Simulated assay, not measured.
Amino acid sequence: MFVLCEMKDTVRIPPWEFKENTTDAIMDILNKKFANKVVYNVGLCIALWDLVKLEDSFIFPGDGATHTNVHFRYVVFRPFIDEILVGKIKCSSKEGVYVSMGFFDDIFIPADALQHPAIFESQDQIWAWEYEVDEDTKHKLFMDIDEEIRFRVVDETFTDTTPSGPDTTNTESDIPTDPELKKPPYTITASISDSGLGCMSWWNG
């Protein structure tokens, strides 16, 4: 679930921070820059682990700050494919179930990856697994909001959210974009179609 990734960045230390220990100042800047942010094709950065190497610092003309190339290792959230994780159900729709792990919310279980057969209760906006007790009896096991759920990671998607320049060919480019339509930078697709997966209450007896 968590991995150590070696990264490199140029750290700028402004003059008013020269009184601080250089290593402490660099670590503080790296944590502020990367913590709780997604790095494309790397994952969700959690916290700085350590500094591997500090190269020579430079001061450029017109800028009193120092610039240092730093090699460091960061704790990153990036589960591997087929890893089993536990989260909580955030909400549901006809498309599937959305899961949160507290620090990461962009986990989606498509409808076809739920336990079969599953039905969507449109009035309550929740999914239910129609568990067959015997040939004549079926029992609905509901997937309620905030219930703990065990799932398997089946895919991951990174989206480059770097701002691009204005589209001069589009006469409606000045129309603001709905923030809800923006894609998250990192999403995980999951499944609960295997035995032992799904709501924890189903399997706890």
Rank of each mutant, 00 (worst) to 15 (best):
M1I: 05
F2K: 13
L4P: 03
L4A: 08
M7S: 08
D9S: 15
V11W: 02
E20K: 10
N31R: 14
K33L: 09
A35F: 00
A35S: 15
N41A: 03
G43D: 04
L44R: 01
I46S: 09
I46R: 08
W49H: 13
D50P: 06
V52S: 07
K53E: 14
F58E: 15
F60A: 05
F60P: 01
G62L: 03
T66W: 04
V70L: 04
F72R: 11
Y74L: 11
Y74S: 04
R78T: 06
I81G: 01
I84Q: 02
S93T: 14
K94T: 11
K94C: 07
E95F: 11
Y98V: 00
G102N: 03
F103D: 06
F103E: 09
F108T: 04
F108C: 11
I109M: 02
P110W: 07
P110M: 07
Q115R: 15
F120W: 14
D124M: 15
E130G: 01
E132C: 12
D136G: 01
D136M: 01
H139N: 05
H139K: 13
M143Y: 14
V153I: 10
D155E: 03
T162A: 03
D167N: 15
T171P: 04
D174I: 15
I175L: 13
P176W: 10
D178E: 08
P179K: 06
K183P: 02
P184T: 01
P184N: 11
P184F: 03
T189E: 13
A190Q: 08
A190S: 10
I192Y: 01
I192R: 07
I192W: 02
M200D: 01
S201L: 07
G205V: 02
